[in-house]
Design a binder for these strands. Structure first.
Lengths: 193, 193
DNA sequence: GTCTATATATTGATAGAC
DNA sequence: GTCTATCAATATATAGAC
């Protein structure tokens, strides 16, 4: 089938993105990406000089996706508390992206890369910053000054832990219960003057 | 060098335990274990019929280690609050087992196995139960009835999230700061009547 | 029980025709 | 830009001498 170059490149990235999430980075071979995408693996090197370059492209793709989502949440929710609760809402119903099945899209990648791909881990970890920066703005609007970033990191960390445990037990109910608990915590923080 | 059979088996498990933690399960080859342990890889199949059997032995080894640690904490701390704080203390100073460098011993393994070794993941996840059962007892002693297990899982989850984020950023300071925050939370829970 | 040698499959990566 | 064929390295696993 005929395809323009950019389309082929995007197709490789899209397929790699999904497989890296479902199978992990090291467990996803060129052949498996090639098979699912319908692109011969020998073709990859026309677009990427090595596997780690595919990973970089996938990370940048996830960053754009996350930022777009945060922008929508920013628009759709009028108050900082509503925005923080929208972040927590992401956990409910099994996690919007299948967190209970495959773990967090960012967290599981960061954990894997931290073992034997430490240079690449830094790039993946920067996806956390995208969330933290946005959460920090919300806490700042609630009146927390220098503490805003600490609260942002804490909320992200708690969400990560909830994702890890629900993934370990394959238990979506835990996600919902803990999302409720985080909502209560946020409500108590919002009355801060 | 001469070695009794049991010693060789233990040596393989010890070495695999460390390398699985530092490099991840899939990234640790028989050759690397053989090299570090000084045991030829062809020798492994006298003790384990496959790689996943080494993993099982490593998991059981970690379970025994965790249970022994919990027993000591139980003895050394007179009150349930002190015991819960001892659990949180584990996070401080980079994590007693190098959590900021390699992630949590249980959590990082569970996350990896959840992708493409789901049968083995269940066994690894049961290590969480060892912690949760113990934490649940402490909350029960504080007077929390049916909620004790929920609090136990929540505390474990938050500790996991803190570990994931500190590992992502290679930031031991975050572990200390968040340990303080968990201590405050526990202190507020302890006044429950 | 211990060791060397090796089988078989798969990996990331290349070469070169079209 | 696309594709086939293939390389060199490495993986788990096995066979068989000692």
């Amino acid at each position: 089938m005929y395809r323009k170059g950019q389309e082929t490149r995007d197709l490789i990235i899209d397929t790699a993105d999904r497989l890296f999430y479902e199978r992990g980075y090291d467990h996803t071979s060129f052949r498996s990406i090639a098979q699912e995408a319908g692109v011969p693996s020998g073709n990859f090197y026309h677009y990427f000089k090595a596997k780690e370059n595919i990973l970089e492209a996938v990370i940048e793709r996830r960053r754009a996706m996350i930022q777009a989502q945060l922008d929508i949440w920013q628009q759709e929710n009028p108050t900082p508390l509503a925005r923080l609760k929208r972040f927590v809402q992401m956990l409910r119903n099994g996690g919007e992206d299948g967190a209970f099945e495959y773990g967090c899209l960012v967290g599981s990648l960061t954990t894997e890369l931290g073992k034997e791909h430490k240079e690449q881990q830094q790039k993946a970890s920067s996806l956390f910053d995208t969330f933290i920066d946005w959460l920090e703005k919300q806490f700042a609007e609630l009146g927390y000054g220098d503490e805003s970033r600490d609260y942002a990191k804490r909320l992200l960390a708690y969400a990560q832990g909830i994702s890890v445990v629900s993934h370990a037990y394959r238990d979506p109910a835990f996600l919902n219960k803990e999302a409720d608990a985080l909502d209560h915590w946020l409500a108590s923080l919002a009355v801060h003057s």
